[in-house]
């Protein structure tokens, strides 16, 4: 991942509303050559203004590895495509667990999302703004 500062900015109110309305979102991580991998559908939660996702397969999941390696990609929310950065997120796993349970319930699949290896593969999704 590049050390060049990302031209990131906050989510707009419209994007936040779209995120809140979207049960799941679609995520495409960029490959090393800049092209996008196929979209995958993932669960997501919001903590304050931060949008967070997890890889069900943990840090060895294919899309997660690509997202961490390139740090870039796109998400699709309600027909809206947004260029984003993916940033590994640590230190608030319990808050993410609780937000996932609040959003999706507490079935076996959600319990899988709130345990290792998924718990170790939390990413913050940050919108990239050209011209910022």
């Amino acid at each position: 991942m590049s050390d060049v500062p990302l031209p990131s900015g906050p989510w707009t109110e419209h994007e936040l509303a779209q995120l809140d309305d979207s049960e799941l979102i679609r995520v495409a991580a960029a490959r090393a050559d800049g092209t996008l991998r196929p979209l995958v559908t993932v669960g997501h939660v919001r903590l304050g203004q931060d949008e967070l996702i997890r890889s069900l397969h943990g840090t060895s999941g294919a899309w997660y590895r690509a997202a961490v390696a390139s740090g870039r990609g796109e998400i699709e929310i309600g027909g809206l495509r947004v260029a984003v950065a993916f940033l590994p997120d640590h230190g608030r796993e319990a808050d993410v667990d609780q937000a996932l349970r609040s959003r999706y319930g507490d079935d076996a699949g959600v319990r899988r999302m709130t345990r290792s290896p998924a718990r170790d593969a939390t990413l913050r999704v940050v919108p990239l703004r050209t011209g910022v």
């Binding site: 049960e23 799941l24 559908t41 669960g43 069900l56 959003r103 999706y104 319930g105 079935d107 076996a108 699949g109 959600v110 899988r112 999302m113």
Partner: peptide
């Protein structure tokens, strides 16, 4: 499949 019902 051990995935959340919401995802299914």
């Amino acid at each position: 499949l051990v995935i959340p019902k919401a995802s299914v």
